[in-house]
Design a protein around this nucleic acid. Structure first.
Length: 563
DNA sequence: CTCAACAGCGCG
DNA sequence: AAAGCGCGCTGTTGAG
């Protein structure tokens, strides 16, 4: 293959057993030139071409193609991830003729491996080069059909997300097992040598059993616990903490304490530590686009549910530092921008949107503002939150119209889309039948009630979809721009971290919807922090042009991620 | 025994 | 002060 400089080159990598083809394609995805490679030569060849011309690599999926390249020390700047983009372009409502669905392009279960661990991710899979080319051409056609260029931006960002997910897994989140162990010992009590419960947990359990008058009660059984509570006059319908916490009875305090400790022990206790933290790193499996709204999901280790209590265990290596950044109230800010609601954008000026809502006179207190805004985006109809929503409708009519319209579309069985064109799933096959059965004059009251409940449920989903999904898009561009800027930093003098592709270089280490943690050589801390700020500004501008919406960051440069 | 549903709770 | 959205994981329960 030639080494001519190409400002905008695209190369498809078709990786199959024993044979690899690199196919240069044009802007329509049509083959221009093909080059055969031996597997042993792949990494060096890609490294060289990447350095010479930075093409957009067209790959089946980052999972199958990039992970092994990364392990060989090869960094890709730009890709088009056919698997991730298939899901977007197949469902999008932004063009008249979206991508034809194909089972070959669905994420698939692995043939073997740990059960459940890698659900919904792509397995190693060979597709013929002709299939890959045909799929590329179809995807490029759909992207080009979107004259606003939003699908192009979304696919580029989604593909970058695929790369970042693999890189974060390869790098891992720096995790201090001793700090984690210390927290467990402090909160739960000393770890018993021969199994059994830690001291403080055992004490809480004994106190509960004493107050319930049953020395052998099994506290992890909801059914038995509920019966025991009823016996002593605690008449709750469930054993959930919000219901229990409203009751005044001596058993409540130790029971809530036990539940809290028990949760920590089973979800993130010593067993979790032994299974998920190796060589000072927590390596979860991220699944970009794993949620229908475009948010990431994860598999294994509960990466997106790490309790705040354990945050201090996230510690930078010696000579390194963490840059921790999150966005305050990302979703309502996205709503203000999407709807061009200048009054809501005005309320969003500065760090605290809820304070701005109070200033606008819509509600009296910050707490009311919070419940009203969340209720507006989630579709609350009852309770204090539902009561406050109409006040927002008067002050922010454009923003409220956008979410109300999304809800109505969903209730009618329609499809809604995010700002960049990710569309909600169609209703299931039984939707039409259920709604039709409820519309006839002779419909049974129970069927009518059920159908209306289902319709409202779907309306709440589509109402939230447009906001949550657009926030996910902003976050994706933010991530991609952070990655791009970190890559520009020089190799550090700072001592290397343990190993891996980022042993000498600042990298993303964690991502959670609207929050990032970077692991950075100390000498680059300020530059990395600035990169995070710049990336946020760029994400906002890419999405909304010149519309004046603030997306402020809470950003800290720290040794440990505790707040 | 395995499997799926559920309850409950962690995160945004 | 609420019970409105999206997830993953653990442990229990009940069905086969």
């Amino acid at each position: 293959m030639t080494t001519r400089p190409a400002a905008d080159s695209r190369i498809l990598l078709a990786v199959a057993e024993g044979e690899i083809l690199a196919v240069r394609v044009d802007a329509a995805g049509v083959e221009v030139q093909r080059h055969e490679l031996r597997p042993a030569d792949l990494a060096d060849w890609v490294r060289r071409v990447e350095a010479e011309e930075r093409p957009r690599w067209i790959i089946r999926s980052a999972r199958t193609v990039y992970a092994p390249l990364l392990a060989a020390g090869v960094h890709l700047t730009r890709t088009h991830d056919l698997l991730l983009c298939h899901a977007i372009l197949r469902d999008t409502d932004a063009v008249a003729r979206p991508l034809a669905p194909s089972a070959d392009w669905m994420p698939r279960e692995p043939d073997v491996g740990e059960p459940g661990l890698f659900a919904a991710v792509d397995s190693p899979h060979a597709e013929s080069v002709d299939d890959l080319l045909a799929q590329t051409q179809e995807q490029f056609r759909v992207i080009a059909a979107d004259r606003r260029g939003r699908l192009a931006l979304l696919c580029a960002a989604e593909s970058a997300g695929g790369l970042i997910a693999e890189e974060m897994r390869a790098a891992g989140l720096p995790w201090d097992a001793e700090v984690h162990d210390g927290i467990l010992t402090e909160v739960l009590g000393a770890r018993p040598a021969g199994g059994g419960l830690p001291a403080k947990m055992a004490a809480a359990a004994d106190a509960v059993r004493f107050h319930l008058g049953d020395p052998h009660l099994h506290l992890d059984s909801h059914v038995k616990l509920l019966r025991a509570l009823h016996r002593v006059g605690v008449n709750v319908e469930s054993t959930s903490q919000w219901e229990l916490s409203a009751i005044s009875h001596p058993v409540i305090a130790p029971l809530l304490a036990y539940k809290k400790l028990s949760r920590l022990m089973s979800a993130n206790g010593w067993a979790w530590l032994a299974e998920w933290v190796r060589d000072g790193r927590f390596r979860p499996v991220y699944i970009p686009g794993g949620v229908v709204t475009g948010r990431w999901a994860s598999a294994g280790g509960g990466a997106l549910q790490l309790p705040r209590m354990l945050r201090p265990a996230v510690r930078a290596d010696p000579g390194w530092t963490l840059v921790v950044a999150d966005v305050a109230q990302l979703e309502p800010r996205m709503l203000a921008a999407m709807s061009s609601d200048t009054a809501m954008a005005q309320a969003a000026r500065g760090q605290d949107l809820y304070a701005g809502v109070v200033s606008s006179g819509a509600v009296a207190t910050r707490e009311e503002a919070k419940y009203a805004v969340l209720g507006a985006m989630y579709g609350a109809t009852t309770g204090d939150s539902g009561r406050l929503v109409p006040r927002l409708r008067r002050v922010y009519p454009r923003a409220m119209h956008l979410v109300d319209a999304a809800a109505r579309t969903g209730e009618d069985g329609g499809v809604v889309s995010t700002w960049l064109g990710r569309s909600s799933p169609r209703p299931g096959p039984d939707w039409d039948a259920e709604q039709a059965a409820a519309s006839g004059a002779d419909a049974e009251p129970a069927a009518v009630k059920r159908a209306r409940a289902r319709a409202r449920e779907r309306g709440r989903f589509t109402r939230n979809f447009v906001v949550q999904g657009t926030a996910a898009e902003w976050a994706l561009i933010w991530l991609a721009e952070i990655r791009h800027r970190l890559r520009m930093l020089p190799v550090a003098e700072t001592p290397a971290t343990a190993s891996g592709p980022f042993a000498h270089h600042a990298h993303l280490a964690f991502f959670l919807h609207d929050e990032v943690i970077l692991h950075v050589p100390a000498e680059h801390a300020d530059a990395a922090a600035e990169a995070v700020r710049e990336a946020a500004a760029v994400a906002t501008a890419r999405m909304f042009g010149s519309f004046p919406i603030d997306v402020p960051l809470d950003l800290r440069v720290v040794q440990s991620a505790e707040k």
